[in-house]
Amino acid sequence: MNKETENLRKEIVRISGVNPVKCMRCGKCSATCPAYDEMEYHPHQFVYMVESGDIEPLLNSKSLYQCLTCFACVDRCPRGVEPAKLVEAVRLAAVRKQGANHLKADDIPALLDEDLPQQAIVSAFRKYSK
């Protein structure tokens, strides 16, 4: 692992408060995930890839925005690893880069829709931009 990756890994671990080494690779997070089929990288892969420093593919993956943050994986993980918090931290690492906002204010009018609660838009805006 080069120094830059190592620093990124440490940063993600620190932001998330998740210790990926606690994972025993049971896959219950991915078994429980309702967004599994939408995701390129699945919750258990997030944990393993952060642990092994293979973070670059995660930063560029759409999976970051497909996680519903429903916390089912956090609730059911038998080791208390809390994968959703790790996904969140990787997402933060991505959107905090200059110009990397996933959702910009200008995008919002196009997304408006009668059935969509405004709260969801506010929440998404907070989540996907810095």
């Binding site: 219950k28 429980t32 995930c33």
Partner: peptide, 17 residues
């Protein structure tokens, strides 16, 4: 691991990885 089991009719829908 199995993530959830949901009874549906007379079946049990098992979602697992």
């Amino acid at each position: 691991m199995v993530g959830k089991v949901a009874p549906e009719g007379d079946k049990l829908m098992v979602q697992a990885s």
